[in-house]
Design a protein around this nucleic acid. Structure first.
Lengths: 206, 206
DNA sequence: GCCAGTGGGTAGTGCCGCTATCCATCGAGG
DNA sequence: CCTCGATGGATAGCGGCACTACCCACTGGC
């Protein structure tokens, strides 16, 4: 429908494409060449665009996510778990030199934080991969500061959980989880850039 | 050279491709069909792969970055400024409903933090775009918590600056800035996921 | 009746990150 | 000295992804 396109700024052929890919549920058919799209479709479309534009997700990844959104028998935690693999590409285990050290340090960190239970979490593998890259490039200093970064991440996560707690609508909670997690990455990154620029400006530019 | 390929795990044709694209400086030619690649090339190649794999940068973006790396007359701060547009896609100004509110809130936040000077920073535009998306999807709660996220981001940035201060080698500092910023995003995101999973596990799964 | 607008499907486009192929050259082993 | 395989250099091609263009049958409103 042209209204849907006008209401979201997404061109009609793209909407058709999203319908084909299952990102958008089909409208209620009124006739053979007519279907009704409600505010739920506008909302979903905005969600899809937000995930694609700022979440950096592929269409296929969003399709997978959306399938779980439409599946009624899924809780917030489960959906979040499903969202993880969508974000992080399978980080190859890496046979490099730094990989072993990285693995050890991640294990240590998890133990220190009491996160042992999460050793198999995909993000732990991502973490190991990033650390391995940094180590191979001689950035060992990062290791000494990991606890600081972990503390900052914990603070952000605590805020995430607090926001989620405020959401009473259970149906919307899953959306909040996905949006908060994925757009939150971009949001935090942007804030970090600004803070960096501020600190650097104080130190160097004056 | 096959050594270079063996030392990094990057296939030879890809190395050729990177040479073509200027991601990798050409080796010192020993003969018409022979060139010497040193440890600097191995390092650079690892840098390129790290930025592509975990930084999410396109080849073209890395090429732009690398041009500045090879340019001797560039300071860390300048390079960081150059790195910003590479990471964040040009976020369309957005004529949506939430755009106005988002802009106002970002301006308020910058003022509160004393970051007024950074209003034109590309990350400020990204921030506005993300907020606008969140607002249009009814996630107003995030606004009330922005200061918490900003605090977490500040903490991370402070750690960044501290690490950078430990780096004495001026030549390597620019690499640290790029790596720390881009891979740091992935690193912090991974840590945040883990912290989220930990907190959610406490609250729900037990 | 007529015709813009709709849904539905197929096919094509442009870009991106490689990958394959070809060629002249050269270095080392026999 | 001569062959063989590797090297560098260049061009062309591939596969995937996110759309986009085109075509068609249909139909609601004028």
């Amino acid at each position: 429908m042209a209204d849907l396109s006008a209401g979201t700024g997404v061109p009609v052929p793209t909407i058709k494409y999203y319908l084909r890919e299952g990102l958008l549920p089909p409208g209620r058919p009124l006739a053979r060449n007519q279907a009704e799209y409600g505010p739920a479709h506008v909302r979903r479309l905005k969600l899809v665009r937000a995930l694609a534009d700022y979440g950096g997700l592929s269409i296929a990844a969003i399709a997978g996510l959306v399938r779980h959104l439409d599946d009624p028998g899924v809780a917030g935690g489960t959906l979040l778990a499903e969202a993880q693999p969508a974000v992080t590409p399978p980080p190859e285990p890496g046979g490099g030199a730094g990989a072993g050290r990285a693995r050890r340090h991640v294990a240590d960190l998890l133990a220190r934080k009491g996160w042992d239970r999460l050793a198999a979490h995909p993000s732990a593998a991502t973490l190991t991969g990033v650390l391995a890259s940094l180590l191979e490039l001689g950035l060992d200093d990062v290791l000494d500061r990991m606890d600081d970064y972990a503390a900052a991440a914990e603070a952000a996560a605590a805020t995430d959980v607090r926001i989620l707690g405020d959401v009473s609508d259970r149906e919307r909670a899953v959306e909040v989880v996905v949006l908060g997690t994925l757009l939150g990455d971009t949001l935090i990154a942007a804030l970090r850039r600004l803070a960096q620029a501020h600190l650097a400006g104080e130190a160097c530019t004056g």
